[in-house]
Design a protein around this nucleic acid. Structure first.
Length: 362
DNA sequence: AATCCGTGGGA
DNA sequence: TTCCCAAGGAT
């Protein structure tokens, strides 16, 4: 708990202190039904909570739902996930993004299986030591799955808290202050429900744009609403996007209806994922010089159009070349021929799926 | 501590 | 179109 009164960025002239009980009462009436969420009064399954929390990192509920269901069907328990081949995990994750999460997910499952007897640690410290589990996720699992008081601060909580207290400091510098303010709000009872209530509030009421303040259980104590400045919080430093990079991808199609693919290096961008052979990406790449970099000698034809894709930190434009080659053509070093019919099951990230699609279509 | 790391949807 | 955003973590 907070021992000394914290000084918010602004004095709160008229706002009363937000009451956790009011939020919990709102949650009891309006909580979202989610596949990984236990029904009221029922115990949460740590495996489901963990799996969902990893998937939900920087990812929307809508995007996660089908992946969550698929993972649960494919890997019903943490032990089965631990025993599964890494390749199967990457294939199941393909399209969700942030692929280091999938590698860490697998490593975490193996650690839980081997070092914890297949049960997740119940403490924040124990959870924090596992791969892919940081401060947020450890607090979320400890509170939601094990009913322990923990300070859960995600993007939703940051938005709710900065509005409640009109925190003027910009993210990410404001994180320590936000955490202290969240600490002051977190009750001893029902910590898991409180954490989920904060996130539901942020997701459905206290939204980034056009928040539904009229429906908010904390509309009275919210300083930003009083001042009418809700949408200006949280303050953020704006970051600049990277420069456009160019590259080429080579889609070789063999007469036996297979495509040439390879696996990217385990770390870094799209680490461990599948792709057609291609060039490095750079800001000054010239597509006219790409043919010298093709993976095999063939009659390469440039496909009409390009693949445009935007990563978190830079936009990419891929020129795609296609060649049709005889069925006996051997795969170059580090590459393999894979049936077109089974491409859906490959660990192709979205950008590479686009490239292959353009190559096959053009 | 600042960067890197995906993707799809909405305004 | 362009920008921002979504239950962050690792280095």
């Amino acid at each position: 708990m907070v021992t000394a009164p914290l000084s918010p960025a602004k004095p709160r002239a008229n706002a009363p202190r937000p009451d956790p009980a009011a939020l919990l009462a709102w949650y009891d009436r309006h909580r979202r039904a989610l596949p990984w969420r236990a029904l009221p009064g029922q115990a949460a399954d740590p495996y489901r909570v963990w799996l969902s929390e990893i998937m939900l990192q920087q990812t929307t509920v809508r995007a996660v739902k089908p992946y969550f269901e698929r993972f649960l069907a494919l890997f019903p328990t943490v032990d089965l996930l631990a025993a599964a081949p890494a390749e199967d995990v990457m294939k199941a994750w393909a399209g969700l993004g942030y692929y280091s999460r999938a590698r860490n997910l697998h490593a975490c499952a193996q650690a839980v299986a081997a070092e914890h007897g297949g049960r997740f640690p119940a403490s924040e410290v124990g959870l924090r030591a596992l791969p892919g589990i940081g401060a947020y996720t450890a607090a979320a699992i400890a509170s939601i799955a094990f009913d322990q008081r923990a300070i859960v601060v995600d993007g939703n909580v940051e938005r709710v808290v900065t509005r409640l207290f009109t925190v003027e400091q910009a993210l990410p510098k404001a994180k320590p202050l936000i955490r202290d303010l969240a600490d002051g709000l977190t009750p001893d009872a029902r910590p898991g429900d409180f954490a989920q209530a904060m996130m539901d509030l942020g997701a459905t009421i206290c939204t980034p744009k056009s928040p539904a303040c009229g429906l908010c259980p904390w509309r009275e104590p919210c300083q930003a609403r009083i001042e009418g400045t809700q949408e200006s919080y949280p303050r953020k430093e704006k970051k600049s996007g990277g420069a456009l990079r160019f590259g080429a991808a080579f889609v070789a199609v063999r007469d036996d209806d297979t495509v040439l693919l390879r696996t990217r290096p385990p770390k870094g961008l799209l680490g461990g994922m599948t792709e057609p052979p291609g060039t490095a990406w750079s800001t000054d790449f010239d597509p006219d010089e790409a043919l010298g970099l093709a993976p095999l000698k063939a009659d390469w034809r440039r496909c009409i159009g390009v693949v445009d894709h935007t990563f978190t930190h830079f936009p990419l434009r891929l020129t795609v070349f296609r060649a049709d080659v005889p069925a006996e053509t051997p795969a170059p070093e580090g590459c393999r021929w894979m049936p077109i019919a089974t491409l859906d099951g490959e660990a192709l990230p979205t950008v590479m799926r686009k490239a292959v699609a353009l190559g096959l279509g053009g």
